[in-house]
Design a binder for these strands. Structure first.
Lengths: 199, 199
DNA sequence: GCCTTAACGCAAAGATCTTGGCTTTAATGG
DNA sequence: CCATTAAAGCCAAGATCTTTGCGTTAAGGC
């Protein structure tokens, strides 16, 4: 077999088109969907409405995303993913506090909150944690790893998820009580005081 | 004014009908809705489908609940409310452990989980915590009050919500990791060890 | 038992959503 | 610049959802 000859049809990917128009449509649809979800909630996201606001034909949306649930999955995965790098302030407490502030900044906006609630509904159809959640989780893992490199005592990832991320998210999701940075710092404080152990 | 005479039209409630047929329809619709939510998720709950399974006319459902969101609110409020009294084992640790097991029993079934996720979507439209959540919260408050009566050291309600209820719910909601009674007991253990203070 | 009327059933009309066949546009490789 | 073709647009048919008017059933009060 000569190396420059395609040996099988499955060796050549079908040449997906990533640039130009497709990307524009994708962004327009995401923006329109995020706005509509912020306005009316994820449960009544309608594809014709999204298409109209995005200036796109409904058929296109149906073909690319299938149905409202599929679109919702893609939108939440792309708009809720952390866009800033994990903070690196030099101390564990500083990193966790900054991470919490950054996370709160994302999920306490009208749009972020609506998207977060939508993503919970999505979790029903998929198994395991969503990639978006995995991203935030790995940010926390990186913060803990930094602390370990410095030789600083630090909690485990499980403890950080359970006693920092979980309370933060649940307060916001169920609006049990207002969630601000002062509250977040209380959580960080409790976490490092009780669970920061040397390696 | 004689006490047996209605003094104004607004003193007489419009004679709502609670018995018989209405109650039957209500239950049939709730059951059908819960089943359909468990099967296909709350986001595509359709009123005609619910009505068909309940053996009821769609018009009836539209008139009583307005739309799918209204029905969802009512169903989750009624099916997710705790039906057992708060446990009273004699120790704080025992009460919390039993409460957690009882809660897990509700929210880890297919139907309970789907309803819980649906109720998160509902939280978007209402302000403040849902009555269902308030009920579970007050169960925890009762448990802490019992401990206080016995003179046992105990955490605050805020700490109990943040470090026991929140991790439990979030794991289940986002299926981050399996949630069983062993995990719940780890949470209870951490909570009483670090936060159980005398009054 | 009889009357009143809230709640339900029925059917038809209108709105909205979804799908499929076909044409047109424009990204990519030569 | 041209050829290829993935992706988007257009339109019309079909399915599904939602509303509305009106007749029927059955709680609740007398």
């Amino acid at each position: 077999m000569s190396p420059d000859t395609p040996v099988g049809a499955d060796e050549r990917p079908p040449a997906r088109r990533e640039g130009g128009r497709s990307a524009r449509v994708r962004e327009a649809v995401f923006s329109a969907a995020a706005e509509l979800i912020a306005e009316g909630g994820a449960e009544r996201l309608s594809i014709p409405a999204v298409a109209a606001r995005a200036g796109v034909n409904p058929t296109t949306v149906y073909r690319r995303w299938g149905d409202a649930a599929g679109l919702l999955r893609d939108v939440t995965a792309n708009r809720l993913a952390p866009h800033d790098p994990p903070p690196d302030t030099g101390t564990l407490r500083g990193d966790l506090s900054a991470w919490a502030a950054q996370t709160l900044g994302t999920i306490t906006t009208t749009e972020g909150l609506a998207l977060l609630r939508g993503s919970v509904a999505c979790a029903a159809t998929s198994e395991g944690p969503s990639p978006r959640m995995a991203a935030r989780e790995s940010q926390l893992a990186a913060i803990l790893a930094h602390a370990a490199e410095r030789g600083d005592p630090h909690p485990t990832l499980r403890q950080t998820l359970d006693y920092l991320l979980a309370p933060l998210y649940l307060r916001v999701l169920l609006n049990l009580a207002p969630a601000d940075t002062a509250y977040a710092d209380t959580l960080v404080d409790d976490l490092v005081r009780h669970y920061a152990k040397p390696d």
